[in-house]
Nucleic acid binder design. Structure first.
Length: 283
DNA sequence: CTATCTGTTCTGAC
DNA sequence: TGTCAGAACAGATA
């Protein structure tokens, strides 16, 4: 379930560790997890790490790029000297041996450190791409929430074309807004006080403003706590995030609403996905 | 044991 | 063109 805050947390963690390192080997344990020619990355150094939507990109010194999509259960974990190093000190609160049965790819750097790509369900992937191919993929995504382009005006302009769609499917549409998934959309709509089933055409200006602000607040909170570890997500050192302790509705079906209304969190299905909400706090 | 659920994205049908 | 079911896959839960 890694969404924007989780991917951004992994990106920041990896940046501290692997910028400038040279890839000397890649072991492909699961062929479908790696798409491209491995010869195009061997001997190259990692120059930059970026994030667009839920994707992590690595710019290489030879003109190629690595692009990762973790989908539902992907992990990127860096190991040096058999230890997960956090701020210069070994971190011992990880929970998986490496490699393990879910390890799909193992990158080895010149100093012997390794980057493990784990993915239980094998939906995720790593691709080797040229700059042009990478740019074309990135151009297919909508606005990044943490840019000045993410405004009420932008939302209204997009909503005008599909007035009949509900707000939940609108916010999770990657071609409209990049990086929001099932957890953060439910949390954002709870904070905004808007039911996920509401049609775009029926939303008031005040509600659009509330939605715009709430999405940013919730994503920022996710970043602050290093992401949500519902089950598979871990950061670049294999350590879980803390945002799951601050979720108001997600996976809280039947539990008391934390909005102070005295009600109970409900669950429904929208677009095939579990949707959590408070029928009292959200209108 | 079987059936169902999970949640991201792509594909194909209507 | 929009919408929606189904698929990719593995494991937890009922």
């Amino acid at each position: 379930m890694p969404e924007l805050p989780e991917i951004e947390t992994i990106k920041k963690g990896l940046a501290k560790k692997i910028i400038g390192k040279e890839i000397v080997d890649i072991k492909i344990e699961t062929t479908k997890s790696f798409q491209g020619d491995k010869e195009n990355i061997l001997g190259a150094k990692i120059e930059e790490i970026g994030r667009r939507a839920k994707l992590i990109s690595m710019k290489l010194s030879n003109g190629f790029n690595l692009l990762f999509h973790l989908k539902l259960t992907g992990q990127l974990i860096y190991v040096e000297n058999g230890e997960r190093m956090a701020g210069g000190h070994p971190s011992h609160d990880w929970h998986a041996k490496l490699p393990n049965t879910n390890t799909r790819l193992i990158f080895t750097f010149k100093n012997g450190s390794k980057l493990f790509f784990n993915d239980l369900r094998k939906f995720g992937w790593c691709k080797v791409l040229t700059d042009i191919e990478l740019r074309e993929i990135f151009e297919g995504y909508g606005v990044e929430p943490f840019t000045s382009d993410f405004t009420v005006d932008y939302l209204l302009r997009k909503a005008k074309k599909i007035p009949n769609r509900n707000i939940k499917q609108f916010l999770t549409d990657q071609e409209i807004i990049a990086g929001i998934g099932n957890i953060y959309v439910d949390e954002s709509l709870f904070l905004a006080g808007v039911l996920p089933t509401r049609k775009l055409r029926d939303l008031s200006m005040a509600e659009w403003q509330k939605i715009n602000v709430s999405v940013l607040k919730v994503l920022k909170l996710g970043l602050k706590y290093g992401g949500t570890s519902d089950r598979d997500y871990v950061n670049a050192l294999g350590v879980k995030g803390g945002m799951q302790n601050y979720l108001k509705v997600y996976h809280r079906v039947g539990q008391p609403c934390l909005g102070g209304c005295g009600g109970v969190v409900k669950r429904m299905t929208i677009g095939g996905r579990g949707t959590h909400y408070c029928p009292t706090c959200q209108k």
